[in-house]
Amino acid sequence: MNPIAISLTASAILFALGLFAVLSRRNAILVLVGIELMLNAANLNFIAFWRWGGADAALSGPLFVLFSIAIAAAEAAVGLAIILMAFRHTRSNDLNRLDSLHG
């Protein structure tokens, strides 16, 4: 079996697991866990294509992953800050309770 086939299949499974976590969880922080899994699946694809793609793409794959990791860190920081703010209002992380907006 081709190594790129293994890593791309693993990345597809990782993405599907992340999507499953996002859709099935009701705890807002665990939804963020699912999003992190999906981002990692995308990063794994970039590195796999850089390593085994065979194209003359220099360092495009690792550079994309570098920027993606920075954006993921920013997303996690803002996401958790918003979740903490919502927790102060509702005293819960349950997404079902966040069904109303107050100005």
């Binding site: 081709n2 791309l8 597809a12 993405f15 599907a16 999507l19 099935s24």
Partner: peptide, 28 residues
């Protein structure tokens, strides 16, 4: 169950596409 119903077709589609396409690439 709804989450599985959404993520499983995506997994099959992604896995099939990636597996088929990766067979065309030769590892350097």
């Amino acid at each position: 169950m709804p989450a599985l119903a959404c993520s499983l077709p995506l997994l099959v589609m992604l896995g099939f596409t990636m597996f088929k396409q990766s067979a065309l690439l030769e590892a350097p």
